[in-house]
Amino acid sequence: MSGEGSRPGRRSGRRPGKVDTKAAILDAARTRFAESGFDKTSIRAVAADAGVDPALVHHYFGTKQQLFATVVQFPADPEVTLSTIDAAPLDELGATIVRAVVTVWDSPAGPGVVAMARSMIAGEPTLARSFLLEVVLERVRARIATAADDGHARVALVAAQMVGLLITRKVIGLEPLASMPLPEVVAAIGPSMQRYLTGEIGAAAG
């Protein structure tokens, strides 16, 4: 058998190893999430696009949320921060979000968060939007939603506040905010966040 004949084809037979399989899953997930968003993407659909069993997706990446965090290269498990926010009393939700999120930014994972944010905003705004509204803030929105107000405008305002804080504190380093101690950041930003979540914001609160 010639060397050429023994060379494995790129698209035939089993995938040569788990690295290729994981890469195929990530490629498929990145495309699906970008085109359909988080809510409308399923593990089964990602697996079908990658040509693997859904069990492999779970094996390598865990839940859909963990897969999405890997796709956007989030350097920490978002569930840790989200669990802290979930446990906060409703009247302390604004301050808790600021405290929990800025703690991650100020941790060793912080540079990775900034790099991820820059990459998504510059190159994949659909993924950035899905990550913020469908993963990070959806559980918050579900808590504050009422029959008269679904909470979408409120969490969009929260996202705007936090993205602005990330850019001023970590990207452009605007002083004194860039070096402000965490308790002062929480005291300054928390009340505005709480108003967005549960206070009056014009027509949306009517």
Rank of each mutant, 00 (worst) to 15 (best):
Val140Phe: 01
Ala47Cys: 09
Asp86Val: 03
Gly110Pro: 08
Leu133Val: 01
Pro54Asp: 12
Ser6Phe: 02
Thr96Leu: 02
Ala142Ile: 00
Gly123His: 11
Ala23His: 09
Ile172Asn: 05
Glu134Ile: 09
Ala147Gly: 15
Trp105His: 12
Val52Cys: 11
Ala117Trp: 07
Pro16Lys: 05
Ala122Arg: 13
Asp77Trp: 10
Pro191Glu: 05
Pro78His: 10
Gly151Ser: 09
Ile25Lys: 01
Ser12Pro: 00
Ala153Thr: 07
Ser83Gln: 14
Ser42Val: 05
Ala95Val: 01
Gly110Trp: 07
Ala28Ile: 12
Ala76Gln: 10
Ala156Trp: 01
Thr81Tyr: 03
Phe38Gln: 03
Lys40Cys: 14
Ile167Cys: 04
Val80Trp: 11
Arg10Thr: 07
Glu124Leu: 07
Ile172Thr: 11
Gly112His: 06
Pro183His: 11
Ala203Arg: 12
Thr81Asn: 02
Leu157Ile: 01
Arg169Cys: 13
His58Pro: 00
His58Val: 14
Gly206Asp: 15
Gly151Ala: 10
Phe74His: 13
Ala187Met: 00
Thr31Ala: 14
Val104Pro: 00
Gly112Trp: 05
Ala45His: 12
Arg15Ile: 14
His59Ala: 11
Arg154Leu: 13
Arg141Gly: 10
Thr84Arg: 15
Asp20Phe: 09
Val171Arg: 08
Val104Arg: 10
Gly199Arg: 05
Gly3Pro: 02
Pro191Ser: 06
Phe33Gly: 10
Ala145Val: 01
Pro111Glu: 11
Gly94Ser: 07
Gly51Val: 15
Gly206Tyr: 04
Ala69Trp: 13
Arg141Thr: 06
Ile121Gly: 02
Lys18Trp: 13
Asp149Phe: 04
His152Asp: 10
Val114Gln: 01
Ser6His: 07
